[in-house]
Design a protein around this nucleic acid. Sequence first.
DNA 1: CGATAACATGTTATCGATAACATAATAGCA
DNA 2: TGCTATTATGTTATCGATAACATGTTATCG
Lengths: 345, 345
Amino acid sequence: MNLSNPPKRVTIKDVAQAAGVSTQTVSRVINKFSYVSETTRQRVEGVVEELGYRPSTLARSLIQQRSYTLGVVTYGLKYIGPSRTLNGIADQSDQLGYMLVMQELDNFGMNRIEDVIDSLLARQVDGILWAAPEIGDNHAWLEERLQNISVPVLFLAMQPRPGISSVATNNYQGAVMATEHLLANGKRRIGHISGPQSWWEASERKRGWRETLQKAGIDASEERCAEGNWSSSSGEQAFLQLLESFPYLDSVFVANDQMALSVLREAHRQGISIPGQLAVVGFDNIPESEHFYPSLTTISQDLQRLGEEAVQSIVQMIQARQNNQFIAAQSRFIQPTLVIRESSK
Amino acid sequence: MNLSNPPKRVTIKDVAQAAGVSTQTVSRVINKFSYVSETTRQRVEGVVEELGYRPSTLARSLIQQRSYTLGVVTYGLKYIGPSRTLNGIADQSDQLGYMLVMQELDNFGMNRIEDVIDSLLARQVDGILWAAPEIGDNHAWLEERLQNISVPVLFLAMQPRPGISSVATNNYQGAVMATEHLLANGKRRIGHISGPQSWWEASERKRGWRETLQKAGIDASEERCAEGNWSSSSGEQAFLQLLESFPYLDSVFVANDQMALSVLREAHRQGISIPGQLAVVGFDNIPESEHFYPSLTTISQDLQRLGEEAVQSIVQMIQARQNNQFIAAQSRFIQPTLVIRESSK
DNA sequence: CGATAACATGTTATCGATAACATAATAGCA
DNA sequence: TGCTATTATGTTATCGATAACATGTTATCG
């Protein structure tokens, strides 16, 4: 129970005064350049220690026009995917000496997007990581808005576009791997439970499934596919629907592990043996999928790494701009991997 | 491919000049107090619009000694729990007009903690939310450090301590509910798979199990308990161990859903029927638990709400301090609820 | 030994905004 | 009509730091 008034902030002036030097000299000591005599240095360092002085990042950012802060825009933190990405972002930015200012989108109203960007810019962030998924045309704004944003912006999990920097998992490639794996195991009647097609990632996964089957000369028509909304519940719905429209399927590629979980459960309930009668492959490799019953074959996307690479890229962009260099925008893809478990053996 | 130099920041001076008024008048217009004639207001607003001016939060924070920013310290973002809490924090702070500066801890070295706090304070955050779990004595620092932090600090998921504000789920109560539910279903040989006992939350859950059994005159000795580390894999280990040390168990209370998932799976593999031979109750109510096979009875803790309440509390604390009022520190508990599903029927 | 470079420190301007104070014009009222 | 209150706007100081410039002191070297 502490009734004493809160401690006052110690400023560079306090230190200067206590050490009997100018603020500039204190600044020199804490920034380690330039000439300061050994005795002065020690005296100042002593005072800094004693008073517990920490320079105000705020003031520093203001004069230097540089904040060592990244703005991060996320969406859907309550799901595991975005959080893992954020985790990678947090780790890496910490390592490179940047702090994070976070903004979570709740929906995709256009003015909300303006506000979010403006409030990040008002805080002098050095760069912006846009880690909200591409849904419908919710990235349309960037065409007109992007060029008058004064700091670099990098997009995560966005469809590559010329002139815009992005990092994304190669969803298409992952889906191809999943489908080819089923083909390799002799499956021919391969269904798909997709994510919402308005999501870029979902449509890429579906495209991977469809084109791989077409290339193999196998039917990949719409009856062989059902759409969920990523949630486990929707996965159950979609699976039931798929069983009706395509009763003879021998395997199914499910667009994420949560929905795949429901497929496993529902199959079990209906007495469909897995993988005997039905092979299942998921996507994401959530930690639990290894412990489903049976354990789930899935496509592993390393979202942690996605976040890390995003930070590395944007820091490069920031440094380039600092030095007045020009870096061409680039879109990077991260390759997912296939993790084979019991559900497809 | 945009080679033009990045747009320069528009400042209040630019606006003032373009509108032919002083910066103070511009400030008055954008802050809506005080007297400004209608014509001037419109002219200034026009220029603001035209130049796309946004005031620098940084400069404003500096002069006002107030940033409308909260510092958030998290740990374990790659897990779903912390992310859901963060989600609640983000939502609510957005609603109350605060931004978030995030710091993720990777471990618990003491100097790291100092650094984290200092860097938040250097950014003039108005308050700090400490959302990292209490493990071992990793909160020991707060005794000595807390009183010379110049802003309010609120702890999430920490054991209540006098004089310190916190918000936490009542883990003990949740465990009691879980155990009583099993008792009510006629179970008497009730085992427990706990989380790491160095975690406060884990030890509370275990205590709830133990004391409830003791009150009912039932043995709750150590052989009837095994410890995991929250992960699904560790749950499997712990379950196997428990089956050895306490072969006749008829039910088990598992300290989180991830580990409970492994119990379901392993039981299935061994031909133990659930809930017939073994009733299972988890903790957390992760979204997937409804779709486990069988669906999992569990204790639901609303982490989203936890985050929201934390923000509300700290904002109150901030406002109180602003007005030089004194609010006694308080520890709040959020009650969890029991969700009954197939695994315990 | 004097000129120049290296070292050491201080002074003033600045970042972008608001606070505090000052001033001028108009309005209302006794 | 003159005085005070209200309205409208400008000027200067300030937040906490660094940049840019200035100046004095001590080495170094031909």
